[in-house]
């Protein structure tokens, strides 16, 4: 049986604007993959199943309160721990638009790029965005507009090689395109 995937969704992230996306702020460092998707749910790789348990061991109410396009905001070292890409799939499956963090753990960051899922590393944004703020992200310009506090926050876009992978829809599509 194949894992259900919706490639259009990953490509939509950059081009589609989610107005009034809500920020869910977790002012904590080292939010790890076991909290994002506990191993007791790793007996499946179906994104829709994983999404039901997104962030469960950090905030059991997350899935209920998050709506499509919302954003997770966190401290340093987000996604540390396991190499399970299920952590990215759970977040993407929960229709979270992106994660903004002070810094990301290496494998999680790489997995996200490989899945075509854009992450934002910005200490400034983490300092300024408050829980519940409504924000809008312009990925191409590298700007987060916080509608609640009426501030504009600039962020450094991903490096070119990562953008290429994301534009192609993920690593496998990128490889198929570049090796064709």
């Amino acid at each position: 049986m194949l894992r259900s995937r919706d490639d259009k969704k990953t490509q939509r992230q950059k081009s589609e604007v989610w107005p009034m996306a809500k920020a869910h702020v977790y002012q904590r460092d080292h939010i790890n993959t076991d909290e994002i998707i506990p191993a007791r749910y790793l007996n499946t790789d179906k994104e829709a199943e994983l999404a039901k348990h997104c962030m469960e061991d950090l905030d059991a109410g997350f899935v209920k309160k998050a709506k499509a396009g919302d954003v997770i905001v966190a401290g340093d070292d987000f996604g540390c721990g396991s190499s399970r890409e299920h952590a990215v799939w759970a977040i993407r499956g929960a229709k979270v638009q992106t994660v903004i963090a002070r810094s990301f753990a290496r494998i999680f960051y790489r997995n996200a790029i490989n899945c075509g899922f854009y992450l934002i590393e910005s200490a400034d944004a983490v300092d300024k965005i408050k829980d519940g703020d409504e924000i809008e992200i312009d990925y191409d310009a590298g700007v987060i507009k916080d509608e609640t506090s009426k501030t504009k926050i600039q962020f450094m876009p991903l490096p070119d090689f990562a953008l290429e992978i994301i534009r192609d829809g993920g690593l496998l599509d990128h490889i198929m395109k570049t090796s064709a």
Binding site: D45, I107, N111
Partner: peptide
């Protein structure tokens, strides 16, 4: 260590 997409790329 790598995730599943990297793994797929490495396998292929």
């Amino acid at each position: 260590g790598i995730g599943s997409t990297d793994l797929a790329a490495a396998i292929a």
